[in-house]
Amino acid sequence: MSTVSEEHVNSTGVDNKKLMMWIFLGSDCLFFGSFISTYLVYRNRSLSGPYPNEILDIPLTTVSTFVLLMSSLAMVLAVSYVQRGSQVIGRYWTLATALLGLVFMGFQVYEFSHFAHLGLTPRTNIFGSTFFTMTGFHGGHVTFGVIWLVIFAISRLAETLKQKMLIVGSVLSVVIAMTGLMMTHTLDVIPHIPSIVAYSVFGVGLLGTIGTLFLLKSSDNQNIESIKKEEGNLELAGLYWHFVDIVWIVIFTVVYLISANDGAPLL
């Protein structure tokens, strides 16, 4: 973003990007709030098919919640270390955050495909529709966060910009390919996405790598300004990541802990 925002005029003393991230998170509360409200309104309305009380696995989800909470801890440690000047330790904690996030996504993918095997898809009943869209979009947010964090963590391990971009590009394509593979695994959940899409996604990743090869040439200098900028960006990623975590806290409570015994409509 341009530096007009960094000029003398700053009425509150806070960084523009940080302020915008908080506004975005406030807005995202409404986004998830709408999905969660829909889920709550539609409780006990499924006419058939697997019901929550038959299919939700509380112990498993507790473990995945714990994993996501620990990823939040890793995130705040990463930011803390980077702010204290320990750049390298901070990068490793960022990687740890991303890894724990990927583990959480693994739990989600397992849950989705397991439910599909048990006969619950978004088309089966209203519980399927509301559950999968709500947790699906949450998973999408997590995935975006993982990609962001991985790019961030890797991007400093290379000295020159060229290496950085190459690594970014290949990591991006690997992550995208993994997403593609995840999608093939959950195909029965989202039946309209044919396998060609999954492989196209991988192809996009390849194209991304090739594209990034064009994007760079010479080296950059490490200086205080760029370090501060990276610190700021990690803090932004941290805010986003914690938000995704608290949305999961709400979903876990509302869907799993409170509504786990939902069943057929009470006629």
């Binding site: 806070v14 302020l19 709030g33 939040s72 914690h242």
Partner: peptide, 28 residues
């Protein structure tokens, strides 16, 4: 706990608190 400490809202400028909780409270 996550919002206040991990997201540093406790220690930061009040404007962040206002801006975030406006959305959150409205959603609730």
């Amino acid at each position: 706990i996550v919002v206040a400490f991990f997201m540093h809202l406790r220690f930061d400028n009040r404007v962040f608190t206002i801006v975030f909780f406006a959305g959150f409270v409205l959603a609730v």
